[in-house]
Structures are given as structure tokens and as C-alpha cells.
């Protein structure tokens, strides 16, 4: 049970990252590889500042840092015409060194100066064990929900709509006298700010930061977005936003499930996760096949008459 509560919390926090990836991948239609860099950037900035006691500031600055990373990638893409994938890789690899420089070591502790502990002390100072785990999950859910609401509002505003249109038909947006360099860069800033926020929250949730925490986050984020779409579809922006978070939670539950049964031992964890993710992703295709089979059967029945 405890495992699943933690999975829920992680699902919400990594869900913020999935939202960032959803924005770059689905809304802007740009494969943005900055993610691992900006996740680590948010993580290390939050860790360093929180360890010194600046809990709230650490999260705000992490968000700004992520936006700056997104801006760098956007600048490389738009003003310097570097291929989107390469621009992301450049920023990401550059950030790796910066993150190391920030942390000062491969890992560090936040010394219990975390957002979650501060909140707990403010609201439920006496809770412990299971209760506090549930409380942490609720806070994480609240943060994630807040971000979702802001995003849903933002993409209905004029500027948000311009960003959506940029990913849809860039030439047409330009013809509507909108500077697509600005909309693209702004989109990447928002996406990476969210990724960095996710990194910062993860550092606070774990009470320590490890430079390697960001490894593989891009793949997890992509998987979350796609799992979410397999489960809920992608009819509109609101559904897309919901499905990114749902996908992230589903992914964490899959991991928790694999861990809880300890199938084939810990070394096989990644393989088992990969298998379960593959199965989840194949659901729409299987559903389709079933529908085709049913259709054929029905058609045959009528042909016999």
C-alpha cells in the first residue's frame, strides 16, 4: 500500500514533467531533448538553495532556471537556425556540467529543508509514517492540479492559442502577423520551466539530489504522454493535459507493481517496466484489430442472408 501511495506522489510530480513534454512534443510539435538537462537544472538549483534553508525560493528559482534552459534551446533553434533535435542536445549536454557545478558533487542532501516537511509542520505537525505519506501525495496532487488549471487557462488565452497554432501550421501563424520565433521560444520556456519544477519537486520529495536522477527522465516523460493518450485519447488540449498526468501516474503504478512482485529480481526491473509499458501502448492497436475482426464477422453474417 505504502508503495502505491509513494507511486501516486511520484506520478503527480513526474506528471508536471510529462506536461512539459506534452507542450513541446504535442503542442509545439518540436522534439525537445533539453528535458534531461532542465530536469537536472531544476533539481540541483532547488537542492542547493533548499539545503541553505531557502525552501520556497529554491522552487521559484528552479522554475526560472528551467525557463532559461528552454530559452537557450529556443534561441538556438529560431535565431541561429539549429535543428531542433540538435539544439536540445546542445543545451542538455551543456547543462550537465552546469548541474555538476551547482551541486558541487554527484549528490547532496537537502537536510530536511523540504517543501513537504515545511507544509507538514504547518498543517499536521504530529502526523508520521503512513499519514504523512498520504499528506505528501495530497500536496503533490495539489501542485500538479494547480499547474494543470493554469495551463488549461493559458492555452485558452490569445497568446496560448498562438503557441498552439504555431505547432499546427507555422506558415499560417506567420501570415497572421505573429512572430513565430517568439511563440516557439515562449513555448519551450514554459515546457522546460515545468520540467525543472518537476525536478525541483522530486529533489524536495526525496530530500536529496543526485546528478543521475535526470537520466532517463525524457524517456519516462515520453512514455507517460503516450500512455496517457492510449488511455484517454487526445481530442483536445484539456484531454491532452489530463492524459499526460494520468499517463505519468499509470507509469508509476506500473513500476510499483513490478517492484512489489519483485518479478525476476531487481536487476530485471527496467526490462519488466519496458514490457508492461509496451503492452499498455499496444492497447489501442489491439482494440482496433478487435474492431476490424468484429466488423468482418458482422459483414459476413449479412452477406450470407
Amino acid at each position: 500500500m505504502q508503495l502505491y501511495i509513494t507511486a501516486l506522489q511520484e506520478g503527480f510530480l513526474y506528471g508536471i514533467m510529462a506536461l512539459g513534454i506534452f507542450i513541446s512534443l504535442r503542442i509545439l510539435n518540436i522534439p525537445d531533448l533539453t528535458t534531461e538537462g532542465s530536469f537536472g537544472f531544476g533539481l540541483s538549483i532547488a537542492a542547493v538553495l533548499a539545503a541553505k534553508g531557502f525552501v520556497i525560493t529554491s522552487i521559484l528559482l528552479a522554475v526560472i532556471a528551467g525557463a532559461a534552459a528552454g530559452f537557450t534551446t529556443g534561441f538556438l533553434q529560431t535565431k541561429l537556425s539549429i535543428h531542433p533535435v540538435l539544439a536540445g542536445i546542445i543545451t542538455m549536454s551543456g547543462l550537465y556540467s552546469i548541474n555538476l557545478l551547482c551541486l558541487g558533487a554527484a549528490n547532496m542532501s537537502l537536510n530536511d529543508n523540504t517543501l513537504f516537511r515545511v507544509m507538514k509542520e504547518a498543517f499536521f505537525p504530529n502526523s508520521s509514517g503512513m499519514d504523512s505519506k498520504i499528506f505528501y501525495a495530497v500536496i503533490s496532487g495539489f501542485i500538479c492540479l494547480l499547474i494543470m488549471v493554469i495551463l488549461i487557462w493559458f492555452f485558452r488565452t490569445h497568446f496560448g492559442m498562438c503557441i498552439r497554432a504555431t505547432g499546427d501550421n507555422e506558415q499560417m501563424v506567420r501570415s497572421s502577423s505573429i512572430n513565430v520565433n517568439i511563440t516557439k521560444t515562449a513555448g519551450l520556456c514554459i515546457a522546460n520551466a515545468l520540467v525543472a519544477l518537476s525536478g525541483a519537486c522530486i529533489a524536495h520529495a526525496q530530500n536529496y539530489a543526485d546528478i543521475h536522477s535526470s537520466n532517463g527522465t525524457l524517456v519516462v516523460g515520453l512514455a507517460s504522454v503516450i500512455i496517457g493518450e492510449a488511455l484517454l485519447g487526445k481530442r483536445s488540449i484539456v484531454i491532452g493535459i489530463l492524459s499526460a498526468v494520468t499517463g505519468s501516474i499509470a507509469y508509476r503504478f506500473i513500476v510499483a507493481f513490478v517492484l512489489s512482485y519483485n518479478i525476476c529480481g531487481a536487476n530485471m526491473m527496467k526490462l519488466m517496466c519496458a514490457l508492461v509499458v509496451a503492452v499498455t501502448l499496444s492497447i489501442p492497436a489491439v482494440k482496433n484489430q478487435m474492431a476490424v475482426l468484429k466488423l468482418k464477422k458482422e459483414a459476413k453474417k449479412h452477406a450470407d442472408h
Partner: peptide, 19 residues
């Protein structure tokens, strides 16, 4: 070419109206 396919009619028009 002249429209954004994933945006609704009113959103497309709003985009143009933003001129």
C-alpha cells in the same frame, strides 16, 4: 495551408482577427 487544422473555426478566425 491557410488554416490551422487542429484549431476550431472560431480559434482560427480569432488568430486572424488578432491583427
Amino acid at each position: 495551408k491557410g488554416t490551422a487544422p487542429n484549431l476550431t473555426i472560431e480559434e482560427n478566425l480569432a488568430l486572424a482577427y488578432s491583427r
